[in-house]
Write a protein that binds this DNA or RNA. Sequence first.
DNA 1: CTGTATCCTTAGGGATACTG
DNA 2: CAGTATCCCTAAGGATACAG
Lengths: 149, 149
Amino acid sequence: MGYADYMGHKRDHPRSTCPISLALEVFGDPWTLLVMRDALYLGKRRFGEFLSSGEKIATNILANRLERLVRRGVLRRKPAEQGREGPIYEPTEKGLALIPVLMEILLWSERYERLSVPPPGFVRRIRADREGLIKLVQKRVRSGLPGLG
Amino acid sequence: MGYADYMGHKRDHPRSTCPISLALEVFGDPWTLLVMRDALYLGKRRFGEFLSSGEKIATNILANRLERLVRRGVLRRKPAEQGREGPIYEPTEKGLALIPVLMEILLWSERYERLSVPPPGFVRRIRADREGLIKLVQKRVRSGLPGLG
DNA sequence: CTGTATCCTTAGGGATACTG
DNA sequence: CAGTATCCCTAAGGATACAG
């Protein structure tokens, strides 16, 4: 431990009840969404897999982020079983629901940030998800962008 | 100054060329997207307006984020003219393109984070944007989610 | 292989005072 | 009003060693 529940320093309660602010207290840091990228788009599930990403996250940071994501209900930790190597981390429904967020970030970055070169397997995986994503977006459009009622 | 160009510590170059990672080096912190929320959804333009948000950002942090957002082409700074009070910060096209990102974050948070209560004027402004947003999303769906070709 | 633990450094950040 | 400048402190993070 040693980390606060919320991300801004010196607080143990949310800064405000604004939904954007609340979301940032879950993933408003340089690492959390990279872990979710690995989980959602690269199919990673195990500690060592997350650790091996190109951005070279440190073990203590990774452990902290995994623990927080589990505590916040974004990932679910399944303990090791006999015959299997170790525990795995897999997205919950709340975690899967971050796919559209990552998608919009991806589109923004591809369009406006030079240097953008997705990691191996990334674009392929996203293409595979495309149909599901389009359906999800269409459904959201049909229902008039829920959540704003 | 005193802040590095990129957000993870001790680096002056991107961690990787992954679009998600690159985007996080622009807004992968607890404050930047709040500034953009204020600019895009609450119509704030001036230093004092950003300063007065419910989350109580400090002046040095705000100055740093505004400077970085300008440097990264997300905001544009227009100097004070005679007759007007002071400089204003307004979104560039790149900045406006963050609206869908914030929208997805909002939908995720409203759905999965308890406590979610948007600040005054927020929902109203988003409702006003709804038509434009739906059009934008529909267009994106029609063209098959560009950026992944 | 999956983490803890530890050491160390620094950037991030809160508070406040101050300046053009 | 729009920031700088300072002080001070802590959490975040990098590196490495080590334990079950």
